[in-house]
Design a protein around this nucleic acid. Structure first.
Lengths: 238, 238
DNA sequence: CTTTTCCGGTCAATGGCGTTGTCATAAGGT
DNA sequence: ACCTTATGACAACGCCATTGACCGGAAAAG
């Protein structure tokens, strides 16, 4: 049912729902984010979303073609959140680091939504703006186009992949999350040096290190290697 | 319904199903993997699995407490697959590259199961063996313990995060996956150079590059930066 | 101010899903 | 050969997303 959805800017007649609320794509997306945040990812069903909005579930299809369409809107909203907190500094490395960390932080703020959204390409406004910004930073730094695109790809995919990974951990039920962390203390930290010398030698370090996200270091390594490549490009073609 | 499931080693009576097949946990897991592989992620439902087995759907619950229990069994099977294809070469960089790519490939072969496996710390035999191997490679290369653990963490998380990311993309319903890829051709490749100069300048490169996984480059960048750090460590303390 | 249009919320129904309570029967130990 | 019980089959429950028909009322036209 394509013709069911009227594009947002052309909407004119807003009729209050039976229970009094006035719907809009924006209201639906933010309510969905609230549902995900409060009750976990199983909570996001059309029926529950309808109930939370005080509307019939099918009313949502007046604003989104399908639940997948809604999901893409949620994904773009998250990207928008990430961009709100970021400012350019002029230095390409710290700019990219800032973008990566902002993205990661925005996704951590809504782990359940991040899990569903991090894997999608929306092509919507916020995503498009982010792509343009990042490509601009890389090309401005002097990366040739092909290299800029390759680094862009690695940078963005890595950021999204870690965001989803850490979101998944955060979104686990409390018991499961605690149990997974405990594996490092209860299992790995007790292995014998005879059978597992390398684990035994580094057990204490592992226990503390694995509590944190691996993203900051992975990001810094990526940026350092990219800088190295840039240096060689600039040396070759001055 | 816990008491419904009898642990596999204690099973004695194997009754053939109405259509003649004899069930077992192993048969169910491999049939599920085949279903996933042949017909995509929507194909794995208890009902379809029952049909594929020539059994009533509810018979599956004699072997697994729930579909999640079944999926964990599938995931466990996958971890074994991941380690079968790798051999040590003696060079730490190509060893790690090989492990990363093998992991990625094994997960890509069964994306739907990979999505569930990538986020968990099991502490079981196969995982433990992998941790020991990777730490051994890093410490053998000369990384000091703290650095070895940090690099280990970044390397493994990166590999798992990308495995899950690319698995998620592959596990999307066909329509959604095609739509996401098309966004690069239909949306980004048509943006005006006036409003989006950097995207417009690199549109052709983006369209081709974004079809592939960003992991190989991200992995190489991580390894290159790690090698650089190692060089500085060895120079400082010969 | 009245009339017409048609957006957009509601209702009811469809076909799918995971899961479970109950029953019947064949396999295995005795 | 008998008895127990494991295990497969059946039917039902309550979810789910999605859709077509309906119609009230707000906006637009006169």
């Amino acid at each position: 049912m394509n013709d069911r959805v009227v594009p947002e800017p052309e909407r004119r007649r807003r009729r209050p729902t039976k229970q009094g609320t006035v719907l809009s794509a924006e209201v639906i997306v933010s309510t969905a984010l609230r549902l995900l945040h409060q009750h976990g990812s199983e909570a996001l069903t059309v029926r529950r979303l309808g109930a939370a909005l005080g509307a019939d579930p099918s009313a949502i299809y007046r604003y989104f073609h399908s639940t997948d369409d809604l999901l893409l809107a949620i994904a773009d909203e998250l990207i928008g959140h990430a961009q709100r907190d970021w400012r350019a500094t002029g230095d390409w490395q710290s700019d990219l680091r800032g973008i990566g960390l902002c993205l990661h932080a925005a996704y951590q703020a809504h782990p359940q939504a991040a899990l569903l959204a991090a894997y999608r390409t929306t092509g919507r406004a916020n995503e498009t703006r982010a792509v343009e910004t990042i490509l601009g930073i890389l090309r401005g730094a002097g990366f040739p186009d092909q290299e800029a695109v390759a680094i862009y790809h690695a940078f963005v995919d890595q950021g999204l992949a870690f965001a989803a990974q850490d979101a998944a951990a955060a979104a686990l039920p409390d018991a499961a999350r605690a149990a997974d962390l405990d594996v490092w203390r209860r299992h790995y930290a007790r292995l014998s040096p005879e059978t597992h010398p390398h684990i035994a030698a580094t057990a204490r370090l592992l226990v503390t290190d694995m509590r944190r996200s691996g993203y900051p270091l992975a990001l810094d390594l990526l940026l350092a290697a990219a800088a190295d490549r840039l240096g060689r490009h600039l040396a070759a073609r001055p």
